[in-house]
Write a protein that binds this DNA or RNA. Structure first.
Lengths: 166, 166
DNA sequence: TAGGATAAGTAGCATTTCGCAACCTAATGG
DNA sequence: CCATTAGGTTGCGAAATGCTACTTATCCTA
């Protein structure tokens, strides 16, 4: 039975992700950014975070390419922070974490809910899926060496080939 | 345009989730647990974490109902730590975080890869989906008050009704 | 063009957490 | 009964966090 290498070598993406997002306020700042917060003072007052910590966290996020810092043309006092593609790509992770917190937290009814703009229905609970979309539980999984994975023929998958996922 | 309430009131599940899992080693311990680590000394040597911190983190995880602590019958020196249902339910979140780290990290080829036991194909990248399975990007979303969401008629959804998700 | 207001930080200091190493305690095994 | 093992706890220095006050650059208005 193949097991994931755990020794500190960080051969898996998790330590890398935690290096960028594992600090105390990172996910809260990210959530604010997803909600249209763009300025230092906004983050500070909305989140109630200390100014020096916020400064440090924003620098870190920018340093990791998760956010972008741009001095505004119209008013050069103001600095505009925005999510990069890399930052936006954390959306599923953040929603998954949030959904877990809602499911197991102290029964928060969670208003407002995140809905699909097209039909105004709540988004689906984030689940682990097989290449063809079947939901997978923890007992449906095992590890394989990447070079031993046999590629699929075209059209064999039920979805438009969202590529790898480890 | 409705926006998510950010003020520290933590009306969303994210702060609750971070309260339980937001500390430095929590996700690494979780990963080890998913990989079959069950004992204090195993966690300690595999992760290279300080003993007092590990002790504290395990207590916290147990306290939050994410792990379970059981003294073993066969050898009462040994303590068996295992994931509860609540802990196992963090799997999608952890995989999402890990996949993100792999996609954007320093180009780690990621061996071994997590595969579906049934057909030995890598699991799909975790994405945000509409109730019917359509993948959703950040621009396909908006917020709605829970009581304003109009319930769907049966069979209108493409998947076996995985319930809410906010 | 001075003077005040605003935005985005920085600096100093107290408190908390982290991390390392050594120590402790209970159970086992010979 | 003594050594060993498993799972911690304790003490202490280093680092991160948080609060408040201060600074710097820019804008706006009189």
């Amino acid at each position: 039975m193949l097991r994931e290498p755990l020794a500190e070598g960080m051969e898996c993406g998790l330590p890398a992700a935690l290096e960028a997002m594992g600090e105390r306020w990172s996910f809260m700042i990210l959530r604010a950014a997803f909600n249209g917060i763009h300025h230092f003072e906004e983050f500070q007052t909305e989140l109630g975070i200390a100014r020096n910590i916020l400064s440090n966290r924003l620098q870190r996020l920018v340093g990791h390419g998760i956010m972008e810092r741009r001095v505004m043309e119209c008013d050069r006092r103001k600095v505009h922070y925005r999510l990069t593609a890399k930052g936006i790509d954390l959306l599923p992770t953040m929603v998954a974490l949030r959904q877990w917190g809602e499911r197991w937290g102290s029964g928060i009814p969670s208003t407002p809910v995140l809905v699909d703009e097209r039909d105004l229905q709540p988004v689906r609970a984030i689940v682990l899926q097989a290449h063809d979309g079947r939901p997978l539980g923890i007992h449906d999984l095992c590890w394989m060496h990447a070079h031993e994975v046999r590629p699929l023929r075209d059209g064999q998958s039920g979805e438009p080939a969202v590529a790898l996922a480890g």
